[in-house]
Amino acid sequence: MFPEGLKHGAVFPADIKLVNEKGEEQTLGDVLNGKRTLLVFFISAAPASVEELGKIDKFAADNKGDTQIIFANADTVGVALLGGGSVAIPETVRTINLIKQEKALTQPMFVAPNNVFDANGLSNRLGFRGLPTSYLIAADGKVEKQYVGTREWKPGDI
């Protein structure tokens, strides 16, 4: 139930599918593109998770340096009931655009399709249960740090 998840130094899987704000499909590898990255998985259904995006966005303004920050909504748990990804993903793309506008976020946002029924679904594969869960991924694609839950961000975290 509580998988260990990715450890410090593990290579973060670059084949993870993401859908950008325009609804275009990409892989995480495309987005990382060799850059040090803070990847923040959030769930639009959890208010604390959405609020955290605003905190990170503000913190990043002065503290991110060369690190890119991306927000990925893993809240597509109802995919099977909604009739599959063809229905759920476009709806979730609408949701991230709305959140970005409402919270005045500046970092790029993505949908990270996640099927919890599937053992290889995103959250099962990466081993996260509570969102936000953030991964700091080094330029070489390895996990530098992992943060579970909301936090008070401080210099040196990113």
Partner: peptide, 17 residues
Amino acid sequence: KTSHEAMLGEELMPADP
């Protein structure tokens, strides 16, 4: 904590930590 109830069989869905 979460804007929808965990559906049937979705106790493992990602949610507020």
